[in-house]
Amino acid sequence: MPDNEGLMDRFVDRLPETAFFKFVAARILTPLWAWWTPVKPLPGGPHPSFQHGDNVQCMMNLIMPLKDKSPVGRAHAAMAISQHKDAIFAGLNNVGTVHFARFVIVGDNICMFSVYDGDFTNYIRDFIATIGEVFDAVVGLVEGGEKVIPCDKNVEAFIQWVHERDLYQVPDTPTDFLRDQERLNGDKAVAPVNDDLTLLPRKMVLQLRANANVSLGSGYRAYPGYSVAQVRKQLGLGW
């Protein structure tokens, strides 16, 4: 037994695991600290970078709440995708920069997850040009979507709308998340600073309150650094 450990020490060490403390942390402490030390939502999408490895195999994670939150609404969404399968695949082939793209329904949200090369706005803009009709069909089913369709007549607003729904990508290292917060507040200092590293858990909690859905890390890549066309060319598939 560690020398000076008392009953209260043992009790307090286990406190965070108790239902009582979990309740207090979630329902009282978190809202309290969110009010006292407010946190801005961090922007979604890949971290801006000019480096080429960061600009291939980028992730888009869209979570779009359906207007009709019922099996009927979900079926409409499923139909919208399946009816347009040909259009989607032809569009993906001709946009030429998409590694993977998936549609998923999770709890009354239609989600679109994709891995693409290059700049996000170029990717969406080229898509509007090729499969704008599909976007209109899907986005029309989504809360707030009516404001940005038809997308080919609302290009800038549509791209912005999609960007706002793209999930924040929590950095791979815990402290880079602090750097994201600092950058958002215009703080570029390195040293000397007066931080409190033990506050990292609270900062993470409050950030996840501001950005309820996030992508954890920038994701694993089996062959990082290669574009769609490089992979297809190397494999002899044509590009």
Partner: peptide, 11 residues
């Protein structure tokens, strides 16, 4: 706490 470059390693 004083040097951000060291925070990742120390954390």
């Amino acid at each position: 706490n004083q040097h951000r470059f060291s925070q990742l390693g120390i954390f």
